[in-house]
């Protein structure tokens, strides 16, 4: 795993741009993210949050700009290579391995991390079992280890995804709408867990979120994206007071914060 200079930023994004057929989805986005920071990226629907995320972990190649992770240029690197460097992510629509059990989902990440995925004859069931149990315990899922992933409730899937993302001890986690589709109490609980992980394990988290309650309560710092551009940046108080942000959320005819819910999980 790469090392960072003690207080150098974990992530440095400069001039990131992407357009789809003339529509500028993301324009000249620059920001930095420090160690153990919980940074929120907010903005109305279609502001370019997910596009931004997809460029950060290599799912999408930017037209312009650079992504530097722990001092290393990872622009255009494949997601799986970025993951090996310690950049994990969770998805807006939960992504798990539905035919497997909860603990197997975590074991997959551990097997991959230990580069054992081409082993043909050892028994996978025992592979990293203890470590996987510890990770599930971390997210409060220890009791569900042997349940079939397909029968989990939505909130549990989100927590499982978090456990999977933590399996390779990442330096940075990208969480795309981690609490979308959850009940308010569960939202707060999940983000409190994320905040704890940031505080206790030195992981940095960049997350997008529609629920302003969650954002204002947990984020150390907030970036506001509108029409592909960053229009404000600062603490919760500063963002609350910012006139442009108010306009985007309340005046500009764009949707209210929190109006968009993730599609219910089928």
């Amino acid at each position: 795993m790469s090392t960072t200079p003690a207080d150098g930023p974990v992530l440095e994004v400069s001039g990131l741009s992407k357009s789809f057929g003339g529509n500028h989805a993301v324009r000249e986005v620059s920001f930095a993210l420090g160690a153990s920071e919980l940074l929120a990226l907010i903005g109305p629907n279609g502001a370019g949050k997910t596009t931004c995320f997809n460029m950060l972990n290599g799912q999408l190649r930017p037209d312009r700009g650079r992504v530097v992770f722990c001092g290393r240029d990872i622009t255009g690197m494949r997601p799986r290579e970025a993951w090996r460097l310690g950049l994990g992510r969770t998805f807006q629509i939960t992504a798990t391995f539905p035919s497997m059990t909860v603990i197997e989902n975590v074991q997959i990440a551990l097997i991959s991390h230990e580069r054992k995925s081409y082993e043909l004859f050892s028994a996978a069931r025992r592979q990293g079992r203890a470590e996987a149990e510890a990770l599930l315990d971390r997210v409060g899922m220890a009791g569900a280890a042997d349940r079939h992933c397909a029968e989990l409730a939505y909130g549990d899937l989100k927590r499982l995804e978090l456990a999977v993302a933590l399996a390779n001890r990442p330096r940075l986690l990208l969480m795309d709408e981690p609490t979308a589709g959850m009940a308010p109490a569960a939202r707060v609980e999940l983000m409190a867990l994320a905040a704890r992980i940031v505080a206790e394990e030195g992981v940095s988290i960049l997350f997008t979120e529609h629920d302003m309650d969650v954002v204002f309560r947990h984020a150390h710092r907030i970036l506001v994206l509108n029409r592909g551009e960053i229009i404000a940046e600062g603490s919760a108080e500063a963002i609350r007071a910012d006139a442009r942000v108010r306009e985007v959320y309340l005046g500009g005819g764009t949707q209210e914060p929190g109006a968009e819910e993730a599609r219910p999980h089928a």
């Binding site: 494949r78 799986r80 090996r84 992504a95 997959i108 991390h113 995925s117 399996a167």
Partner: peptide, 8 residues
């Protein structure tokens, strides 16, 4: 997608 996102 998920598999690629855990390094596979």
């Amino acid at each position: 997608l998920r598999a690629e996102a855990v390094g596979v």
